[in-house]
Structures are given as structure tokens and as C-alpha cells.
Design a protein around this nucleic acid. Sequence first.
DNA 1: TGTACATCAGTGAACGCGCGTTCACTGATGTAC
DNA 2: TGTACATCAGTGAACGCGCGTTCACTGATGTAC
Lengths: 228, 228
Amino acid sequence: MVGKRAQVRAELTAEILASARRQVAAEGAGQLSLRAIARELGMASSAIYRYFSSRDELLTALLVESYNELGSFAERADAAYTRNDVLGRWAGVGRAAYEWATANPAQYALLFGTPVPGYAAPADTIGPASRFTGVLLDLLAAGEGQGRAPVVQPVIAASTTADLHQLRTMTGATVSDSVLLAGVQAWTALFGLISFIVFGQLDNVIGDHDAFFASASDLIGRQVFGTG
Amino acid sequence: MVGKRAQVRAELTAEILASARRQVAAEGAGQLSLRAIARELGMASSAIYRYFSSRDELLTALLVESYNELGSFAERADAAYTRNDVLGRWAGVGRAAYEWATANPAQYALLFGTPVPGYAAPADTIGPASRFTGVLLDLLAAGEGQGRAPVVQPVIAASTTADLHQLRTMTGATVSDSVLLAGVQAWTALFGLISFIVFGQLDNVIGDHDAFFASASDLIGRQVFGTG
DNA sequence: TGTACATCAGTGAACGCGCGTTCACTGATGTAC
DNA sequence: TGTACATCAGTGAACGCGCGTTCACTGATGTAC
């Protein structure tokens, strides 16, 4: 049985995290303040230290939570398609990322924006961070399994071949160099697109963000997976 | 003739900006502190107010300066190629942006990273900001003039057609919808790629950043301009 | 079941820090006659 | 060319604010016998 104390502790930990999330959403990750959280929860600022031993630890918890949210969101979106429907899956996963990002811009910025100065993400964030890329790698493998290939064949330097080799052993991926390189490029393109929209670079350039995202994301998908 | 006072004023203004630049480079834009600048220049913190009426005004000056740096860097790179060598020009302009970004990561973050909370860039940044995109639009026009076309034909919603139309009138561009959409997509892809590298998303994934950038940027270029 | 003790949550004051901005001021540099 | 006055740069103290973190403490909740 779970002790009452442990239960109350879990609840308050969750409340602190929730308040931190709200805080980050409202002011950005750089402005995350333990005192403000304590104020919102109506407790002494020192009490927070019973739950998180420093501001950085709270940031890490937030980071892990956000990566997991994005990852599970993408996994669920992916699961809704037939495995063979590679372009549909790409569209779904991309849209999931886009929707999560626009719904949670500050959390998105925490993951993909300017690194928080003086903060280095510890190793426990690697696992959650790779949930999203895991979906992508699986997608790349499925595409190649169908005989799909990038519409433009990449030119790859020797050092990059080595990097791709190591990436394969790290992730257990099995796709070819061309597909892997084009896939990583598509990954950066997808998040570049989302960042431009979320960070306001396309304000005054594109009015209907959703429609533009759909077109551009579809373009990226057909570039990596061919028109099949 | 320029009065001595005016000259000294211009020099100190430049020194303040230089110190601010150093500050941003070392700590990030969020940490830009007037007091720290004053300390470095050996003057009273209140003296800064003779030159910039607020912290935000200094930030704006920095933003304008950075956009101009990036823009002129790209313009010079572009000018080094034969006008017809569209893929060469794309590679050169992309490399210019990449080199500027890696050499000035904090200034890059100021332009393309998480927006500084509580700060809205005023209208005077639009001009400098569009120097880079001006180069790109010119490049797109040159490509289309040679009969080049994106390797994958974009699918464009009605609202996006309207957005593209407005974009054309705003910028004086003359390219077709497909080329313009693929061009904007390539623009977001290029900066997504740079951001992933500069912000550390590819650490532990790709070792040789320069080589990877070259491959991926080349890929983007051949996607927009065709293999012609 | 009741008692004695250990564990833990939360308090409130304090430390030491840095920040942007204002203000009345001193002197030096420029300008008009 | 010299004098009287206006302009401007820079000072230093102060205001009011917020922050992360530490520490000795009180009181409540749990545990062992």
C-alpha cells in the first residue's frame, strides 16, 4: 500500500510541475522562478526545496516531461495509420509535432529554441528526447522497405558516412546512408518549419499558418520518401 | 565638418554596442545587462542612458546590426558567383549563413531563436531583416528564369495562394506560386538545419557538422532548383 | 492499543546578489555676440 | 579674440524590485515496541 504521506508528496510534486509549466508557458523558460511557483501554490519559497533540490532540477523535469509529451503525441498519431501508408504517417507525425508546438509554444522553445544559458541538459533527457526520432527512424525504414528513395540523391562526405554509421549503431536503425541522411535533413526541415511559425518568423509573410504548414510538410515528406 | 563632441559620441555609441555584442555572445540575449556594459566600459550605469534610452532600444540596435551583418555577408557571398550558377549561389549563400551563425551563435539566437520575452521587435528591423530574403528571392527568380522547377510539385491551398500573392506584392517578386512556396520551404529548411547545429540538437548525432551541413544544404538546393 | 521516538513537510527570516531606471549634481565642451 | 551663457556627458546615490538558496525552527505524520 502507498502511504498517505507518499501520496500527498506525489500530488504536490505534480502541482509544482504544473505551476512551473504554466510559468514557462507565460514567461518563457528563462523566467522560470521558484519563488513565483511558491507564491502561486501559497507556500514558502523554501518549501519547494523539499521537492526539487534546485531550479535546474525542476527545469530538467520539465524538459523530460515535454519530450515525453511530444513523443507520445507523435507515437499516437503514427499508430493511427496503416503501417504501409508512409506518406500518411509522415503527415500525421508532422502535424502532431506542429499541433503540440503551437499549443505549447514555450515548452517547444524549451526543447528546440535557444538553449537556456548556464543550463546543460543531463543524460536522463536523452531517452525521452529520442522517442520522437524513434518514430521517424521507423518511418524511414518502412519507406525504404517499400523500395522508396529520396527524390534527390544526397552527396555524402566520408566523415558523414562515419557519422551515419555510428548513428545506426546507436539507434539500431538499418536504413541506407542516403535514406538516413535525407531523413535527418527532413527532420531538421520539419522543425525549422515549425520554429519559423512558432517563433514568428513568418508573421507578415504567411497569414494562414496551418495551410502553409500542411503544404510545406507534405513537400518535405514527398522529398524524402519519393512520390512512390 | 563633424564636431568633436559628435565624433566622441559616435565612438562611445559604437563601444557600447560592441560591449553589448560581447555580452550577448557570452551570456545570451536574455542576460544583456546595461550595468554590465557600464562596468566593462568603466562608466556609471546611468551614463548609458545618454546613448540608449532603454534596454529594449539597445536590443533593437543589436538586432538591426545582426540582420545587417548576416544580410551583407550573404550578399557578398552571392555576388561571388556567376548569375546563372544558381546552385552555386545557393550553396554560397547557405554557407554564408551557416558560417555567420556558427561564428556568432548568440546573435544568431537573437534573430532566429526563442523570442526574447517581453520584447517585440519594432518596425525598423523589417528592412535589415529582409536583406537575406531579398537574396533568396532573387535566386528563385533566376532559377525559374532558366526553366528550373522544384523536383516535387507543391500542393497549395487557396488561402496559401492568397498569402503568396500578397508576399509577391510586398516584395516585388515575380516567381510562380510553386517556386515561391518551395522557396519559402527551403528557407525554413536551411535555417532549421542551421538552428539544429547551432543549438546543439545534432550533438551526439552528427560529429562533423560542416560536412553534414554541406550535404544537407546541397540537398535542399537541388530540391528547390531541380537538378537542371 | 498506547506510548516514545524518528522522520519529514513546511515556515519565515535572512544572506548576498543583480537588475533597470531616475534624479539632482558637477564640469567640461561648444555657441553667440 | 574674449566673454557669458547654454548645452551636454558623466557621476554617484538611491528606489524598488526580484531572485536562488540556506538555516534553525515548529508541528504534524508515521514507526517500533
